[in-house]
Design a binder for these strands. Structure first.
Lengths: 137, 137
DNA sequence: CCATAAAACGATAATTATTATCAATATATA
DNA sequence: TATATATTGATAATAATTATCGTTTTATGG
């Protein structure tokens, strides 16, 4: 897998781009190389790439999802004014407030650790994949 | 402020509800008390309440935003199968993998710390509020 | 209390973000 | 090279959220 030119291009765009671009931003850049590429393709490929672990989906508290080509352990901080997303090295934690302010001048207002995994219930039922989309909890 | 019956109802729903409901779920519950309440009102009030710090917006990696009435320091973990969002006490960190598995059987697959605040650039410009929505970074 | 202004409402339209569909094209592989 | 599979672009559909606007509630000052 991973043999199409478009998908490789999309992966390269995200990996060579430290701004954690949105799908829309990736689309804009990809059009410089594939002028006829469709936004649907960009979304599809980004989701595939993040499912196969080549890149990471990061959810900002604002607007659309962002993507990150760095897959080594690190975290993110988002400026509530300019909405840019910056990297934080794992070593600067924990707790982040003072060390981050000292090292890069970012004023921490709030933070949250979001953990994904599989709960005991689901493990006991040997679930591995998401259950039906329609049942919200 | 915070004087309308609808808004108080919405706050109560979120605060008395440990499932971290979506706006849609809050809407469904609110209709039991105010059958003519509008979904727009629910969104509007939830955003106001979270802006004034009465509750917290939490972004799941899936579907819609969720809300949390607990404002004391704690974090969240989301099951990638059933999509429920559970609380994690701050003391169980850091690093979460083993301690969480031991204490509640949740298998940690990945986690991310998302920090919000104000970057050095914006602080130097004395910015306090989000800049124009149209300029994405 | 009542009048007035401000805030909040409900209904609905509009927008934004994302996913789904499907016929055509590109790619792998036997 | 033929065939099967994967992927594409175009487009429609859906989902989530925000905006608009005329009406109703709520606070407050005389």
């Amino acid at each position: 897998m991973n043999y199409s030119q478009q998908r490789n291009c999309i992966l390269n765009i995200v990996c060579s781009n430290p701004i954690h671009p949105t799908a829309e931003q990736v689309y804009e850049q990809a059009r410089n190389i594939f002028p006829r590429i469709s936004l649907g393709t960009v979304y599809r490929d980004l989701n595939q790439l993040s499912q196969m672990g080549a890149l990471k989906k990061i959810c900002s508290s604002y607007g659309s999802v962002r993507f990150d080509g760095r897959t080594d352990p690190h975290f993110h901080m988002e400026c509530t004014c300019c909405r840019r997303v910056f990297d934080v090295e794992k070593s600067e934690l924990f707790s982040p407030e003072k060390s981050i302010m000292d090292s890069c001048g970012f004023l921490v207002r709030r933070y949250e650790i979001s953990i994904q995994g599989i709960c005991r219930d689901c493990r006991e039922k040997n679930r591995d994949l998401p259950i039906d989309k329609t049942e919200k909890r």
